[in-house]
Amino acid sequence: QIFVKTLTGKTITLEVEPSDTIENVKAKIQDKEGIPPDQQRLIFAGKQLEDGRTLSDYNIQKESTLHLVL
């Protein structure tokens, strides 16, 4: 699982696999929060994550925290 922290300070927990794409993660966030993926920007280690890449591409491991910017 990974954590996604929103600007409001809320933390969302997501069940993911390293092979999941960023697009996939955004879809999971939409399921939980109702935020359309095209409004979501995910930041990890100061980098904006691209939809077509996977979590493992960015070396995002379990218990990692991503930041969600709208």
Rank of each mutant, 00 (worst) to 15 (best):
Q1H: 15
Q1Y: 14
Q1P: 10
Q1E: 10
I2Q: 01
I2D: 01
I2A: 02
I2P: 00
F3S: 05
F3M: 06
F3E: 04
F3L: 07
V4C: 04
V4D: 01
V4L: 05
V4M: 02
K5R: 13
K5W: 05
K5S: 09
K5V: 15
T6H: 06
T6C: 13
T6W: 12
L7I: 12
L7Y: 15
L7A: 14
L7S: 15
L7D: 12
T8S: 13
T8Y: 12
G9C: 08
G9L: 03
G9E: 04
G9S: 04
G9W: 03
G9I: 02
K10W: 09
K10I: 10
K10E: 09
T11H: 06
I12Q: 02
I12M: 06
I12F: 11
T13Y: 08
T13S: 09
T13W: 08
T13V: 13
L14E: 00
L14T: 02
L14A: 02
L14I: 13
E15I: 13
E15M: 15
V16P: 01
V16R: 02
E17K: 08
E17C: 13
E17L: 11
E17Q: 11
P18T: 09
P18R: 04
P18G: 10
P18C: 12
S19P: 03
S19E: 11
S19C: 14
S19D: 12
S19G: 11
D20A: 06
D20G: 03
D20F: 07
D20C: 08
D20S: 07
D20P: 01
D20Q: 05
T21A: 05
T21H: 04
T21C: 05
I22L: 05
I22M: 04
I22R: 00
I22C: 03
I22W: 02
N24E: 15
N24Q: 13
N24T: 13
V25G: 00
V25T: 03
V25H: 00
V25R: 00
V25W: 01
K26A: 02
K26P: 00
A27S: 12
A27Y: 13
A27G: 09
A27R: 14
K28L: 10
I29N: 00
I29Y: 02
Q30F: 14
Q30H: 14
Q30K: 12
D31A: 14
D31K: 12
D31M: 12
K32G: 04
K32T: 08
K32M: 11
K32Y: 08
K32E: 07
E33Q: 07
E33A: 10
E33Y: 08
E33D: 05
G34T: 03
G34M: 05
I35N: 03
P36Q: 07
P36M: 06
P36R: 08
P37Q: 12
P37D: 04
P37E: 07
D38C: 15
D38F: 12
D38I: 11
D38L: 11
D38H: 15
D38V: 08
Q39M: 11
Q39P: 02
Q39C: 14
Q39R: 12
Q39V: 09
Q40N: 03
Q40M: 13
R41N: 11
R41Y: 12
L42A: 00
L42I: 07
L42Y: 03
I43G: 03
I43A: 05
I43W: 15
I43C: 15
F44T: 02
F44I: 04
F44L: 05
F44Y: 15
A45Y: 09
A45M: 15
G46K: 04
G46V: 02
G46T: 04
K47H: 13
K47L: 13
Q48F: 14
Q48E: 15
Q48L: 15
Q48G: 07
L49C: 05
L49Q: 00
L49F: 02
E50H: 09
E50N: 06
E50T: 06
E50C: 11
D51M: 05
D51N: 11
D51Y: 04
D51C: 06
D51H: 06
D51Q: 05
D51F: 04
G52N: 11
G52I: 07
G52T: 10
R53Y: 14
T54C: 08
T54N: 05
T54Y: 07
T54H: 06
L55R: 00
L55K: 00
S56E: 13
S56A: 13
S56T: 09
D57A: 05
Y58R: 01
N59T: 05
N59H: 09
N59Q: 09
I60V: 09
Q61W: 07
Q61A: 11
Q61C: 09
K62V: 14
K62D: 15
K62M: 15
K62A: 15
K62C: 15
E63Y: 11
E63H: 13
E63C: 14
T65F: 07
T65V: 13
L66R: 01
L66S: 01
L66D: 01
L66Y: 02
H67R: 07
H67V: 13
H67L: 13
H67N: 08
L68Y: 02
V69Y: 14
V69C: 14
L70M: 12
L70G: 08
L70P: 10
